[in-house]
């Protein structure tokens, strides 16, 4: 069974092609990370999957039905990217409205607790911060134990704790059996929770693969830069750690690690042989990923 399927899905605005003949398959029960930089066409694609926008050509189906089928939406939980709330209604009233609309029997209190909004539940949503609004909409998306969650940039605008909570909820929902379609422009937000990652670029799917296979194709994912007393000794020590390739740049040792956890191993190895004055780590940005995927 395919949760989301698009065939030749295309959206044009005048001369601009926002989404170009997209063929997408999201398997039932999977967590699909939908990546791409801002402007790649992710939100337009999601808009067509959710019937917010009509495709210029092609079609999208959700569990085999047209997106404008209201009955299908009872099985889907939605967190759109550019959503608004009703400023005069409280957080609790938003959740209650979703429960009534979905003919579900969830306890609003429980859902608000899951997104850590229980203390602000009776305040009007007009006074909520951007992050609180996002968590509120996530709570409404969880109403009725949906078979499919469509989350557009669910972690953007959240603090690290909030983003982690979102990833936990994604895993919990997936364990329950839900399919999760999770978009982000940051690789790090999706790699920990997704089975499959699709990378969109300029309205097209540049790559679809499992996270492991994608990482293999990408080679280095994170870089560790060490400012040390003895660069030669440090490079030698780092070379001893399996799976890393150190180089010396501008008097610092730069180590590319395929596995993020290797950074600590390298750090430990180097500290045994010389003094470490400073170190920084950088994750591969999605732009690097695109370079690899589309030109590599």
């Amino acid at each position: 069974m395919t949760a989301i399927r698009t065939d030749g899905l295309t959206k044009r605005y005048g001369e601009t092609v926002a989404v170009d003949s997209l063929d997408l398959r999201v398997e039932d029960g999977s967590v699909f990370g939908f990546l791409g930089p801002n402007g790649a066409g992710k939100t337009t694609t999601i808009d067509m999957i959710l019937d917010y926008a009509t495709p210029t050509e092609g079609e999208a189906t959700v569990f085999g039905s047209s997106p404008d089928d209201v009955d299908i939406r009872r099985r889907v939980g939605v967190l759109p990217e550019d959503f608004g709330v009703y400023p005069r209604l409280t957080g609790r009233e938003h959740v209650e409205f979703a429960v009534e609309s979905k003919r579900a029997d969830d306890d609003p209190e429980e859902l608000l607790e899951r997104v850590a909004l229980e203390d602000d539940a009776d305040k009007r949503a007009g006074g909520y911060s951007k992050g609180m609004r996002k968590r509120l909409l996530l709570a409404t998306a969880l109403v009725g134990e949906p078979d499919l969650l469509v989350l557009d940039e669910p972690t953007s605008g959240l603090d690290p704790n909030g983003a982690r909570r979102v990833r936990e909820i994604v895993s919990e929902e997936n364990d329950r059996g839900a399919t999760v379609f999770f978009s982000s422009h940051i690789l790090g937000q999706v790699e920990a929770v997704c089975d499959t990652v699709g990378i969109m670029r300029d309205g097209e799917m540049a790559a679809v693969d499992s996270v492991e296979r994608l990482r293999d194709r990408l080679g280095s994912v994170s870089r560790l830069t060490l400012v040390v007393d003895d660069t030669e000794a440090a490079a030698e020590a780092a070379r001893g750690v399996e799976g890393v390739e150190p180089t010396v740049e501008d008097g610092a040792v730069v180590v590319s690690c395929a596995e993020p956890r290797l950074k600590l191993d390298v750090l430990d190895a180097v500290r045994n042989v010389t003094r470490v004055d400073d170190f920084t780590t950088t994750e591969s940005s999605l732009d690097d990923v695109f370079e690899e995927v589309t030109h590599g």
């Binding site: 209201v70 939406r73 939605v78 608004g84 709330v85 009703y86 979703a98 998306a141």
Partner: peptide, 20 residues
């Protein structure tokens, strides 16, 4: 106003048809 604020996306994300 719902289209301007984006709350229409919350509303239509729930099982309401546009006629509803």
């Amino acid at each position: 106003d719902e289209r301007d604020s984006g709350s229409i996306k919350f509303l239509l994300g729930l099982p309401h048809s546009r006629l509803d």
